[in-house]
Computed example of a mutant assay.
Amino acid sequence: MNITGNTVFIPGATSGIGLDLALALHAKGNEVVVGGRRTDLLAQITAEHPGIHAVEIDTTSPESVQRAAGQVIAEHPELNVLITMAGIMRIEDWTKPEGFLASAEETVTTNLLGPIRLIAAFIEHLRSRPDATIMTVSSGLAFTPLRITPSYNATKAAIHMLSETLRLQLAGTTVKVSELEPPSVATDLLPGQRESSFAMPLEEFVAEVIALIEAEPDAREIQVERVKFLRYGEARGDYDETVAAVNHLDPHGN
Rank of each mutant, 00 (worst) to 15 (best):
N2K: 04
G5C: 04
N6A: 01
S15H: 14
G16D: 03
L19F: 10
D20Q: 15
D20V: 05
A22C: 07
A22L: 01
L23V: 03
H26T: 02
H26D: 01
G29Q: 04
N30D: 04
E31S: 00
G35S: 12
R37N: 15
R37T: 11
T39D: 12
D40L: 10
L42S: 15
L42K: 14
Q44V: 10
T46M: 07
E48R: 14
E48Q: 11
E48Y: 05
E48H: 08
G51E: 02
I52Q: 00
E56P: 13
I57R: 03
T60V: 15
S61D: 15
P62S: 13
V65L: 12
A69E: 11
G70T: 09
G70L: 11
Q71K: 11
H76Q: 01
E78Y: 07
V81D: 05
V81A: 01
L82G: 04
I83F: 05
T84I: 07
G87L: 07
I88L: 10
I88S: 02
I91W: 13
I91N: 15
I91C: 12
W94D: 08
E98A: 13
E98R: 13
F100G: 03
A102I: 04
A102L: 12
S103M: 11
A104N: 08
E105C: 11
E105L: 15
E106M: 14
E106L: 11
E106W: 08
V108S: 04
V108I: 12
N111Q: 07
N111P: 04
L112V: 01
P115W: 04
R117Q: 08
A121L: 00
H125D: 04
L126H: 05
I134D: 01
M135K: 01
T136W: 01
T136K: 02
V137R: 06
S139L: 09
A142C: 00
T144N: 09
I148W: 14
I148F: 13
P150N: 05
Y152T: 02
N153E: 06
I159G: 01
I159W: 06
I159T: 05
H160G: 09
H160F: 13
H160T: 15
L162M: 15
S163F: 06
S163Y: 06
Q169R: 12
Q169T: 00
A171L: 15
A171T: 01
T174Q: 01
V177R: 05
S178K: 05
A186R: 09
T187Q: 05
D188C: 05
L190S: 06
G192R: 06
R194T: 07
S197I: 07
F198V: 13
F198Q: 10
E203F: 04
V206N: 00
A207V: 02
A207K: 02
I210N: 02
I213R: 06
D218I: 07
Q223K: 12
V224G: 10
V224E: 12
E225Q: 13
R226H: 14
R226D: 11
K228Q: 14
L230H: 15
G233M: 05
G233P: 07
E234F: 15
A235F: 08
A235Y: 11
A235H: 13
G237M: 04
D240R: 14
D240S: 10
E241C: 03
V243A: 07
A244C: 01
A245Q: 08
A245P: 01
A245H: 09
H248W: 06
H248T: 08
P251Y: 05
P251T: 10
G253A: 09
